[in-house]
Design a protein around this nucleic acid. Sequence first.
DNA 1: TCCGAATGTCAGCGTTCGCTTACATTATCA
DNA 2: TGATAATGTAAGCGAACGCTGACATTCGGA
Lengths: 95, 95
Amino acid sequence: MLTRTAADLGAVIRDRRKRLKLDQSTLAKKVGVSRQWLIEVEHGHPRAELGLIRRVLDALGIKLDADSNPSAGRGVPKTAVDLDAIVAKAKKGKP
Amino acid sequence: MLTRTAADLGAVIRDRRKRLKLDQSTLAKKVGVSRQWLIEVEHGHPRAELGLIRRVLDALGIKLDADSNPSAGRGVPKTAVDLDAIVAKAKKGKP
DNA sequence: TCCGAATGTCAGCGTTCGCTTACATTATCA
DNA sequence: TGATAATGTAAGCGAACGCTGACATTCGGA
């Protein structure tokens, strides 16, 4: 699943956890975090540490994939990004 | 790319940034983080905030995909996880 | 219905984040 | 070669993290 927001990820985690019949305490212990933390993450806490998140995903068998694919619809061959546009945009800031 | 560690992600980010001909300062400003932070992340800082990481990936056009697929090769229909095994494993801890 | 488990909420605390500023070190190019 | 940009390192600081522990609240089965 493509996760746009922290809430998305939280939902994925919770869903997966339940599907695996694990309660928060068990998973938290297994992963090595506090139950409190797990609760907040499942609720979509956006500022959680990447490392801990990763550990949870790992424990749940969820792979984290960083797909370097620009928004382009489909037929993007390989490395065909509109550099200039991006750079220009970058220079303008984002109003 | 499948990112296992924070260093992996850092590499992806740096690579992408360079490919886009952006320097750290520019990207940092665009994303709304400090250059210092970007440096640490590119070096694989594992405890960075998920939200900021996501913003960077976003700015670079990198999608974050959380794939809930256990190691199974390919033909996993829908919900066919070996629950018992996983639960049992969970109860044993991980020595 | 009642009882226990699972989940959510609160407060306090030490640690670490991410920021700023300034200064090295290392490319990169005229 | 020298100069300028890009990158790395360091110290100090406020803010937020994640943890512990205790206490509500909700859920599920006997």
